[in-house]
Design a protein around this nucleic acid. Structure first.
Lengths: 191, 191
DNA sequence: ACGCGAGCGTAACGGTTGTTTCGCAACGCT
DNA sequence: AGCGTTGCGAAACAACCGTTACGCTCGCGT
């Protein structure tokens, strides 16, 4: 292997660049030429590691889900107690910084195509499954088991709603957090 | 004007066909050839009325917003009292039938491109402004004025969250309505 | 020290896009 | 009756897409 480039690392760079292009131009504007240019090169830079575009699109969701998951893992392990962990997780779910808004725009592209691109639906389901698992662990002492899934549904709906409202209508982080805290507060004192 | 075709009606047909194509194929697959074929003709059928594709994309959101708005108007005028109207409005906002899920998929396409297609952002903002106005009217007796916007934020977040969760994870209408009713119940008894 | 293969730019291919051009059929007006 | 305008299909255009082919330049293994 001359000119030492670790294939795994390079692929991650490519996925990173693809996500930037995706968030900016959507799936319709996600072209190999743009991804190559975003990396400061040409299309060959991409095609050398992914022989076809579909192969890249197949890889993208998986790498993304792993990254999100590890971000959450890190965040949860830094928490003092379940209540703190819950607060951190909920705050992570809402796009309260410019960078997270950009990432969220990328995520929405998956929702927009989930009904016709199976791998997009898969990453959304997998990530949702993971988040619900976190909630389940954090709430096991607070919520009776037979009401757990309903409570998680409500938490998911609230967080997801704030996500989309922010992307659509540019809610400020204060507005997001005020809405989140009040709804979650109502929710948790009622169970 | 030979071969009597009312330009306004024909344009509405074209927008209708464009929305079908949009919900099915997303913005990336919204091509003039497909729209023409969906109308049983060729591209010229579209280009004759819209000299450019951008012109069609500019017109699409406006016509759509008017349609949504009139659907809500009709729904509200059929209500007996404010509480009933509020219930109907909230139920209208969640995609609880197959047809509404398809329409919702079309709407998500707008969110996905709202940061780079101004007319898409405009229709979302305009519709949101209208819905918030409805809420404001229906809640004026229940909610103190200085808390009104916060309460509306919460209602919007809940409804929007259920919308997106349904599109992403195929929530059943029972699951939607259970989540909606419980969250809105908590919300309204607290104010 | 030298050859070979990895990394990547350039260029060309067929296909699809938005747009323009042209042509003709169908109707209202005089 | 015939003329002009409107509605729309057919076809051609450059621009762009994914993909492939080719060529250069490195740096490691021997």
């Amino acid at each position: 292997m001359p000119k030492f480039v670790e294939a795994g690392d390079r692929k991650r760079d490519i996925i990173e660049a693809a996500m930037v292009v995706l968030a900016e131009h959507g799936f319709e504007g996600l072209t190999l030429r743009k991804v190559g240019k975003a990396l400061g090169g040409s299309t060959s830079l991409v095609t050398h590691y992914y022989s076809t575009k579909d192969e890249l699109l197949d890889d993208l969701p998986g790498i993304l889900a792993v990254r999100w998951q590890s971000e959450i893992d890190e965040l949860l392990s830094a928490a003092d107690d379940p209540a703190d962990a819950l607060r951190r997780l909920l705050l992570w779910l809402i796009p309260n910084t410019d960078e997270k808004v950009r990432a969220e725009r990328g995520r929405i592209q998956f929702s927009a195509v989930s009904h016709r691109i199976p791998s997009a639906a898969r990453v959304l389901d997998r990530f949702d499954h993971y988040v619900r698992g976190c909630f389940r662990g954090l709430l096991s002492d607070e919520v009776p088991a037979d009401d757990m899934e309903n409570v998680i549904d409500m938490l998911r709906a609230v967080a997801t709603g704030i996500e989309l409202e922010t992307v659509e209508h540019k809610w400020s982080s204060e507005r997001q957090e005020a809405t989140l805290k009040r709804l979650v507060g109502l929710l948790l004192i009622s169970v």
